[in-house]
Design a protein around this nucleic acid. Structure first.
Lengths: 184, 184
DNA sequence: CCTTTTGGGTCAGCGTCATTGACGTTTCTT
DNA sequence: AAGAAACGTCAATGACGCTGACCCAAAAGG
């Protein structure tokens, strides 16, 4: 159906181009980019974590607990989208090794509110810095406009639930970048 | 640290802003976006694969073999960045179940050149279509400019080796989008 | 007060995907 | 003939996810 020959003579351009930029090859490229990009994005922290006998799952816990100190186990579970058991296998050692503290909730004492200890914060920061350098390089090479586009696309790749959780985590837009995400 | 009030009085803007858009919060947002985005990006194919008793690794093989028919096992290994054993556990069943064919290389008969069978192509297409819808939605919502920015950033997130492999896979830029990637 | 629901933890077992180390075969190269 | 390369395979290990079942303590509601 798409004109395979060199010159797209008969088909009018313009509006058609708007739809055609979703051609198959462009989507296959997106698959490649996401696969390689995500893999290399996580490679740095993975190396640090491996030295300490931890894995990517530990990093996620440190990351999200660090972002929301006092988060409940249940909220963390729904953010990560894993089961209680899977979280437990990672969270329990983190608590035992002094990276994460549990405090009973004031309103509901059944809850264990999770926060990072100093050790946990230091660890998270170390992982973050590694990843920061990597992302910073990509951001710098691509430029601010590209970064904004990257954010918009990634946000679109997220499901509705994930988007809602992200919005909850980002209570207000950063003062320097007050661009509403839904503005098409 | 960033000026929270409306008028950023003392700090000079301009070049500073160029560096400040890499503030910590923006990078933490990038972490979130990549985590949620990649997870939901792979969720569709994962569901299909699970029904067939396959996993993400099978999809990767189908994808990259489909992109480069006649690829050698060694090349596939270096693309995927996994070990021979890990690939074997996934590739052998794919060959046995008739998704992938092996043909001895003409120049070097030690090589097993891999290609998709019709069954394999159908399977890959099914997975692709699922993902296509998802990405297409995100692309459409974000717009062409954002998509270009997304590509630039993702490319920057890739390591040099991955970038080289991608370039080898994309022998020439798509005729409709002749934007050189390295132009900064 | 007593029952039910909820937040959290845990034990057992399973599957996928990756790893390392070692060994074997065929084929190409020198 | 010797070595290296391309591919395959056996065995063991570990990270990370899952389900099912069961437990405790605290909250909620009759």
């Amino acid at each position: 159906m798409p004109a395979m020959s060199e010159a797209p003579e008969s088909k009018p351009l313009g509006a058609g181009r708007q739809l055609l930029f979703l051609r198959e090859e462009e989507l296959r490229l997106a698959q490649d980019l996401l696969f390689f990009g995500y893999r290399d994005f996580t490679a740095g922290p993975d190396a640090i974590l491996a030295e300490l006998g931890m894995g990517r799952a530990h990093h996620r816990v440190l990351h999200f607990v660090g972002r929301r100190p006092g988060i409940t186990v249940g909220d963390l579970l729904s953010i990560l989208g894993i089961t209680k058991q899977s979280l437990g296998r990672v969270l329990t050692p983190l608590v035992e090794d002094g990276y994460v503290t549990q405090a009973p909730g004031r309103n509901d004492r059944r809850q264990r509110l999770l926060s990072l200890t100093e050790k946990g914060e230091a660890m998270e920061r170390r992982l973050f810095e590694r990843q920061r350098e990597w992302v910073m390089r990509a951001y710098r090479e691509a430029g601010p406009v590209a970064v904004e586009g990257f954010r918009r696309v990634m946000l679109g790749l997220m499901g509705p639930e994930a988007r809602a959780q992200l919005d909850r985590a980002q209570p207000a837009a950063a003062p320097g970048a007050p661009k509403p995400r839904s503005a098409a």
